[in-house]
Computed example of a mutant assay.
Amino acid sequence: MVFPQLIPFASSSSSILQNPSRLNPNKFPYPFNSNPKLLFHPVVRCHLLFRRRRKPVSLRCSASSFSEKHHTNSPKSDDLVELPLFPLPLVLFPGAILPLQIFEFRYRIMMHTLLQTDLRFGVIYTDAVSGTADVGCVGEVVKHERLVDDRFFLICKGQERFRVVNIVRTKPYLVAQVTWLEDKPSANGEEDLDGLANEVETYMKDVIRLSNRLGGKPEKEVGDLRRNLFPTPFSFFVGSTFEGAPREQQALLELVDTAARLKREKETLRNTLNYLSAASAVKDVFPSS
Rank of each mutant, 00 (worst) to 15 (best):
F103S: 09
N24S: 12
L100K: 02
L92T: 04
A259W: 05
S130E: 14
R45Y: 11
N73W: 06
C46Q: 11
L255C: 04
K157N: 01
D78H: 13
P25V: 14
D192M: 03
R247Q: 15
L88W: 11
F234Q: 03
Y30H: 10
L92W: 07
E219H: 03
P75R: 01
A260V: 09
N274M: 15
Y173C: 04
K205V: 06
E219T: 10
A278E: 04
G158C: 07
S34A: 13
S77F: 01
Q249G: 09
R52Q: 09
N35Q: 11
A128C: 12
L119K: 13
E221R: 14
K27M: 13
P42T: 05
Q101W: 14
C137T: 06
F28Y: 15
E201I: 02
V123G: 08
K263T: 01
E219C: 03
Y173D: 02
L262F: 01
L214K: 07
T126V: 08
T132S: 15
T126K: 11
R169I: 04
R213N: 09
V200C: 09
R209I: 14
V135M: 00
N24T: 07
M204K: 03
L49Y: 13
F28L: 15
P25W: 03
K69Y: 07
Q250A: 07
T258M: 05
L100D: 04
L193F: 03
Q116C: 04
L80N: 11
L214M: 06
N19P: 00
Y107C: 00
I208T: 08
E145G: 02
F237N: 01
S288G: 05
V57H: 11
L210N: 05
V148M: 13
C46P: 02
H47G: 15
G215R: 15
A63Q: 08
L210H: 07
F152D: 00
Q250M: 02
K217C: 12
N188V: 08
L49V: 11
H47Q: 08
A260Y: 01
N24I: 12
L23H: 10
Y107S: 02
Y173M: 04
L83I: 13
L269D: 05
D134I: 00
C61G: 06
P42Q: 11
A245I: 04
P87A: 09
P56S: 13
P29C: 10
